[in-house]
Amino acid sequence: MIKRVSGEQWLAFGIILLGLFMAWQLQDIPNDAGYAGIGPRFFPSLVVTGLIVAGGALLMQRRHSNGPDTILSDGENDAAEVEAEDEFARGDADWRMFAIASGSLIAHMALIGLVGFTLAGTLLCFGICRALDTRRPTLDLVLSFALALGLFHLFKTLGLNLPALIPGGVL
């Protein structure tokens, strides 16, 4: 039997790590209980304990199901039993598309203050269309722009001004 670390096990590690990290952060919270008898550290401690225990349980659970008696049963487990290298694989994962979608969101975040809502929004909408494998990019670009521009002016009418390219401008 080859020991494999499934995506879910990585996740379990992540949850345990999160718990440990929070436990470390917990030290910074003063625990003056006052009359309540329990302080502001009490509930976080419960949650932290829960995270570590539940993460451990998830880790154990997968170990068991990865044991020799279940390794042959595909179906339910096939998604989880994958190589460490492509831990998130399910069907044919298209990480290029994930990157395009993520990139669009991050670019939007960075650009919205510089070029205003309309242009950043157009780029975002168009980027998502690309990530979803659009067949007609030109039309999408035009419609993305129309949508972003429309929303910009709708909000402006409402008195909620989104950032513009030039303050007070129409874009």
């Binding site: 975002l124 998502i128 999408d140 993305s144």
Partner: peptide, 24 residues
Amino acid sequence: PRPLLYGGIVVLATMGAYALRQSW
């Protein structure tokens, strides 16, 4: 069409998150 629908959803969601506090 699906790409444009999702594009629109994402723009609406980012706008919803952004509009009130105006913070990246």
